[in-house]
Structures are given as C-alpha cells and as structure tokens.
Computed example of a mutant assay.
Amino acid sequence: MFYSLGKYILLLRLSFKKPEKFSVYWSEVMREMVSIGIGSLAIIAIISVFIGAATTIQVAFQLSGPLVPQSVAGTIARDSTILEFSPTISALVLAGRIGSSIASQIGTMRVTEQIDALEIMGVNAPGYLIAPKIIAGMTMVPILVVLSIVLGISGGYIACVVSGDISPADYVIGLREGFIPLTVRVAMVKAITFGFLITSICAYQGFYTSGGALEVGQSSTSGVVYSCVMILFADLVITRLML
C-alpha cells in the first residue's frame, strides 16, 4: 500500500516538472479540456435535470402537510443539489466516462511501448501525458458541476410545473430563502478535488499497466473503482471540515 502511494506521489512530481516547451503542453491542455468538458455535457445535462426533478417531487411528498410551507421543498432541493447531488453524482459519472478513457488510453500507450519511445526521445512522459489531463480535469469538472447545479434546480422547477405537487411560485420562494454562499464554495472545493482525484488516479493506473489488452481493461476498471471510492471519502472529509 505504502509502495503504491510512493509511486503515485512520485508520478505526480514528475508530471508537474517544469516543461521545456509550454506551447506543446498548452495545446494538450486545450485538447483535454475539450474532451472532458464538451464530451461530458450531454450526460451531465440529462442526469442533472432528472435528478433535480426527482428530488423535488420526493421532497414534496415527504413534507406534504398543512403545517409545512411548500416553499421548504425548494430550499431543501436547492441545498441538496448544490452540496451533494451535483458535485458527487456528477463526479461519479465522470469517473466512469473520463477515468476509464484516461486509464485505457495511457495503458494502451504503455503496453504498445509508446511511452518508452517518448522517454527514449527525452520527453517527460508523465508531464506530457498526465499533467494536461489533471489540469483539464481540475478546470472543467467545476464548470460541469456549476452547469449541473443550474440544470438540477431547473429540473426541479419543471417538475413543479408538470406535476403540480408544488406551485412554481412557492418553489422559487424556497430557492431564494435562507441561501448561504458557503454551500457554493463547498461545492467548488469538492469539484476541484474530485477532478484531481479522477484524472490522477486513473492516469496512475494506466501508466503502470503491464501486459496486454486484458491488463489494460483491468487498469481501466481499477482506476474507476478507486476513483469512486476516493471521491466518496473526499466528499465526507470536505463536508466534515467545511460545514
């Protein structure tokens, strides 16, 4: 365990070693940002709208009663979406989409000796392959989380209009009542942390792949599993420290 942790830290140090040509790394960062951000828009949008709608309907059902104002459902849906659903569920989905891609891509380059060829040519392979992915992940995941929050709250509003369980006016009142800016800061800290964990862990699994196609698949699976576990652990730690 400690040996693997040491290799992980060493790989991160090599990844962020000062590059010789920033232009090459910059183009890689831009390419990864497009791949992570644009490529994940559809799945994040669909999940966020439906989760926001389902959450609002369930809250309305659980809090239905003459003594509970309907606006409470909007407040609970807002806070739960900002603090938990959008950052954590989005990160778990992105771990499956982005993480498996990163691990399989780097793992394939390792077993086909492309990484060895880069090192022979004097290229810092971890810096060229891993650092752009980590930077792009820490940049684009927060943007996707913000989009997820907006769409989740919008999905709740759509659910109010369609179902009629809560009037849209009461839902909007609940969204405005008692808003605490700290919740958004917590969500952004989670998003940045999750982006780092997904990209770095999956890159580590792919970089140290050995064997053939079967091992590449195993590295991809391990990267997704470890990323999901660490996302949930980091979610607990950040929530405990900041709230």
Score class of each variant (00 low, 15 high):
E32V: 00
I36T: 01
I36L: 08
S40F: 03
S40A: 06
A45T: 13
A45G: 09
I46M: 09
S48K: 04
S48N: 11
I51T: 15
I51Q: 06
I51G: 11
A54L: 10
T56S: 13
Q58S: 11
V59M: 12
V59A: 14
V59R: 00
F61C: 00
F61K: 14
Q62K: 07
S64P: 01
L67P: 05
P69Y: 06
V72T: 15
A73H: 12
A77F: 08
S80Q: 14
T81H: 06
E84N: 07
F85V: 10
F85L: 15
S86M: 11
P87E: 02
S90H: 10
S90W: 02
S90K: 09
L94V: 00
I98F: 12
G99N: 05
I102Y: 13
I102R: 09
I102E: 08
S104L: 01
Q105M: 07
T112H: 02
E113M: 09
A117L: 13
I120S: 12
I120T: 14
M121N: 14
M121Q: 15
M121R: 11
V123F: 15
G127I: 09
G127D: 07
Y128I: 12
I134C: 05
I134L: 09
I135Y: 08
M138H: 10
T139K: 11
I143T: 11
I143Q: 05
S148F: 02
L151A: 03
I153G: 03
G156A: 06
Y157W: 05
I158R: 01
A159E: 01
C160N: 05
V161I: 14
S163A: 07
G164W: 07
A169H: 14
D170Q: 13
I173M: 11
G174P: 08
E177C: 09
G178S: 15
F179W: 13
F179K: 07
